[in-house]
């Protein structure tokens, strides 16, 4: 009886001791540890944010992501981005300058934006440090030619109408030229400081633009349209030596004008 008791006690004590999951000294060790490494502005005026997970905590990671706001220490749900993949503990995202995520639809260079990472595991969540950025805007667009403003192949013209066509999700406007008639612009994404590429049909994709004039001519695909946002919703547009076909021969468009929308 004595021996059996000692065996049972010994085995029970051994099992219990081995199964003992000692409490961690710091409560922070139960939660993930994440660090917001960098937030950089691209030439397009987007923001790329990078972060790193340095510890999963006491439980397996569940979600990782970023948040952003104009208030310091943004809440996890502010412009939340959930990241699907980790690469060696690192993860990254891009906040587009033009994005449905942003309630402002574009970054205001006069405001300060705060970015931070977050991570969750079975115990809860934790935030990384916050990085702030201001003066978020795209790099200046430099055309390859120098032209006088408000002229088309040397001929002056004015902007006739400039509506945003929300049903097609395109940005359309027209410029009336004294000698060349009406120039039609149809951008496949919101106008911003960027180099757009011409396309020869009227359903341009993002970063493309259809430029047509009169009723049948249009710029050939592949030319560059330089758009510089000079102030919110005010743009300077330059086209350098872009070819089009007229009466079976090739002609070229050189134009630079200011476009209020």
């Amino acid at each position: 009886m004595k021996k059996q008791f000692i065996y049972i006690f010994g085995l029970t004590a051994l099992f219990m001791t081995l199964s003992c999951h000692k409490a961690k000294k710091s409560i922070k060790d139960y939660y993930p540890v994440v660090e917001t490494r960098a937030a950089t502005i691209t030439d397009d005026g987007d923001v790329i944010v990078e972060a790193q997970i340095t510890s999963d905590g006491d439980q397996q990671l569940e979600y990782i992501g970023f948040c952003m706001d104009t208030l310091p220490d943004p809440n996890m749900m502010s412009n939340q981005v959930i990241i699907e993949e980790l690469s060696g503990g690192n993860f990254t995202t891009k906040y587009d300058n033009i994005s449905t995520l942003l309630p402002y639809h574009s970054f205001d260079p006069n405001k300060t934006y705060y970015f931070r990472s977050w991570a969750t595991n079975g115990n809860g969540y934790s935030y990384g440090n916050t990085i702030s950025l201001t003066n978020i805007k795209s790099a200046p667009v430099v055309p390859t030619c120098t032209l006088n403003t408000n002229q088309l192949n040397g001929s002056p013209y004015t902007i006739v109408t400039a509506p945003y066509n929300s049903s097609n999700n395109t940005w359309d406007f027209q410029a009336q030229s004294q000698f060349y008639g009406t120039l039609y612009f149809k951008f496949g994404s919101k106008m911003r400081s960027k180099v757009f590429t011409t396309i020869n049909h009227q359903t341009p994709n993002e970063n493309q633009v259809y430029v047509g004039f009169n009723s049948s001519e249009f710029l050939q695909s592949g030319s560059k349209v330089y758009v510089q946002e000079t102030s919110p919703n005010n743009y300077e547009i330059t086209i350098c030596n872009a070819p089009y076909t007229l009466n079976s021969s090739t002609s070229y468009v050189n134009t630079r004008f200011v476009c209020p929308l």
Partner: peptide, 21 residues
């Protein structure tokens, strides 16, 4: 308790997933 307030996570799954603090 070790903390006055413990951070916990909620998840909303509909068309998209939202993680709530």
């Amino acid at each position: 308790t070790r903390l006055d307030t413990f951070p916990v996570t909620g998840v909303i799954t509909s068309n998209t997933t939202t993680v709530t603090p």
